[in-house]
């Protein structure tokens, strides 16, 4: 029977979500596989496992539940092993590495912040900052929208200004929030956000972090900020700079 792995906890975890419903339909009950001082939260893997929404949510819920009582290293969705024995062997083999990570993440949660522009508000802002765009807009308006070339020229200038603002805002978002966080991980840019950044925040400092977000929101009405958390520390499972950290937040 193939084994599905949700995450890794200490063997001494005070309240692992044993018997909680995991992935699959019907939901496969969560159990633990122990190797040395570590335990993996696992369940049987359903056949033909696919990244379906319900299964993604089940994965997430098991990890949230485990994380509420002690540190957990979340696996990326979809990890399976041929059997429990293989899982136990991996735990023992890399015990030192995982124990170090669990210690580093103790008492910490992830907050993911995604930002996009409120289009109307950012256009107001860009016009305010750029007299040339204002002038050109006015000229086009007088000329019933302007010629194709005029419209193209205005649009090009506006797009450049908006893109510059996206890059500047991405940097600023990170700068404004990293002070309230222990670590930062910049997510992939391809998802269509001007910023997609995760912050590792101590559980007892989440209020300060959220206050920083509120302040950022108040100071920048043209930003649409989406905050999700507290989450299992998906973006902080590897030590040091996370794989994405080398990228800048802009594009």
């Amino acid at each position: 029977m193939t084994t599905y792995i949700y995450g890794i906890v200490r063997r001494s975890h005070p309240n692992p979500p044993i018997d909680m419903g995991g992935i699959g339909d019907p939901a496969r009950p969560v159990r633990s596989v122990t190797g040395g001082e570590l335990s993996a939260l696992v369940s049987d893997a359903p056949e033909n496992l696919r990244p379906k929404r319900n299964d993604l949510l089940a994965h997430q819920n098991v990890l949230s539940e485990a994380g509420a009582a002690g540190p957990v290293l979340p696996m990326r969705f979809g990890s399976t092993a041929p059997d429990d024995k293989t899982v136990a062997a991996v735990l023992e083999e890399r015990a030192e590495h995982y124990s170090e990570r669990l210690e580093a993440l103790e008492g910490k949660v992830e907050y993911n912040v995604k930002a996009s522009h409120d289009e109307e508000a950012v256009l107001h802002r860009v016009m305010g900052e750029n007299p040339e765009i204002r002038t050109l807009t006015e000229a086009n308006r007088q000329a019933a929208g302007g010629t194709y070339e005029q419209r193209l020229r205005l649009g090009e200038m506006v797009v450049q200004a908006v893109q510059a603002r996206e890059a500047a805002d991405a940097v600023e978002i990170q700068q404004e929030l990293e002070g309230a966080a222990d670590a930062v991980s910049v997510g992939p840019q391809s998802s269509g956000w001007l910023a997609n950044v995760s912050f590792l925040v101590a559980r007892d400092e989440t209020e300060e972090f959220l206050a920083s977000v509120d302040k950022l929101r108040g100071d920048h009405p043209h930003l649409d900020l989406r905050v999700n958390g507290p989450l299992p520390p998906y973006s902080f499972v590897e030590p040091g700079p996370a794989p994405h950290a080398a990228q800048t937040a802009g594009h």
Binding site: L56, Q60, L73, P74, R76, G187, N228, V237
Partner: peptide, 11 residues
């Protein structure tokens, strides 16, 4: 936003 993390990040 959460599902993106479940799929793209994690160990």
């Amino acid at each position: 936003d959460v599902l993106e993390l479940v799929l793209d990040r994690g160990l």
